[in-house]
Simulated scan of single mutants.
Amino acid sequence: MESVNQKQRIVITGASGQLGQELKVLLEHDAEKECFFLDRKQLPLDQIMIIQDILGMYQPDLIIHAGAYTAVDQAESESDLADLVNHLATEEIAQYCRLHGTQLIAISTDYVFDGNSCAALTEDAPVSPINVYGETKLKGEQAIQKWYPEAIIIRTSWVYSTFGKNFVKTMLRLLSERDSISVINDQIGSPTSAADLAKAIVHIVDGESWQGGVYHYSNEGEISWYDFAVAIRDLKGLECEINAIPTTAYPTPAKRPNYSLLNKTKIKETFGVEVPFWKDSLKKQLES
């Protein structure tokens, strides 16, 4: 007979990434859960033949799939590797979940959109990625929906954290080192505090209801990267001049969506998730 006190076994992929580390902060001392934080050494997502065997060693009740190939510009020249990690590895995980009745929460991206919208994007807005990273993440979503439609897929955008490399950390460094910098002002969206996203995921995991499907999560508000940089400077009381420039003045190997603001109504109404305003979350991190 199964013990009523049996802990929920959770595997978190991408344990060394921004979201993986924020989830560790929240979950590693949770007495009701037995969590396994797997980085690329313990779960090499580019070696798809062994993924299901490795997952079988842990026999999870739930997998939070936060691991991904996220080097957006590099993906343009490493498309096979990006596809292996973001698409084919995700397919293996979805197949494992189907075979074993394991719940799955998988993280996706606003880059599945082409950026031509002018209204906040709902989960059923047409997808049409404009770079390799977005294409491989979309194929990962489609593989999950094919093999395990009961899964929860959460698309997010502009993720930053106290951990890892991200826009906030880069700006803090540049704003401290230079007298002036230039930042793009015609790409619109909303940042996501990885700490907030981690809290939302744990809230869903701990909730009473499980509703499979695609959901959107980023912090509230609508800004450009320029607005984001100005807020970082002002909250830290730095002096650096910030010049607003168009995307055309800063070409990158991968195209970015011009507009990828995510509509969060569905995740709020379905799970009662709270979504903080972007500036409040940024202030909280900068003060910590």
Rank of each mutant, 00 (worst) to 15 (best):
I152D: 13
E141L: 05
G134T: 11
K139R: 14
Q145C: 15
V132S: 14
K146C: 11
A151T: 01
E150V: 05
L138C: 00
Y148R: 07
I130N: 03
E123V: 13
S128E: 04
Q145Y: 06
E141H: 03
A143F: 11
A125C: 11
V132I: 15
V132Q: 14
V127I: 06
I130E: 12
I130V: 12
K146L: 15
W147D: 15
L121H: 10
T122C: 08
I144A: 08
Y133P: 03
G134F: 14
D124P: 03
G140F: 12
E141W: 06
D124C: 13
I130S: 11
W147R: 06
T136S: 12
Y133A: 05
L138N: 02
V127W: 01
T136A: 10
S128I: 01
A125M: 02
Y133Q: 08
K137N: 02
T136F: 03
I153P: 09
T136R: 11
P129G: 10
D124N: 12
D124L: 14
D124V: 11
E150R: 15
L138V: 06
P149A: 07
P129A: 04
P129D: 09
I144C: 07
S128D: 15
I152Y: 10
I130L: 05
P126T: 02
P126I: 01
Q145K: 09
P126N: 01
E123N: 00
I152V: 13
K139D: 09
I152C: 14
K146P: 01
L121A: 01
Q142I: 09
L138F: 00
E141N: 08
I152H: 12
T136D: 05
A151D: 01
P126F: 00
A125G: 03
V127L: 00
V127A: 04
K146M: 14
G140L: 09
P129I: 04
T136L: 04
A125K: 10
N131V: 07
L121Q: 01
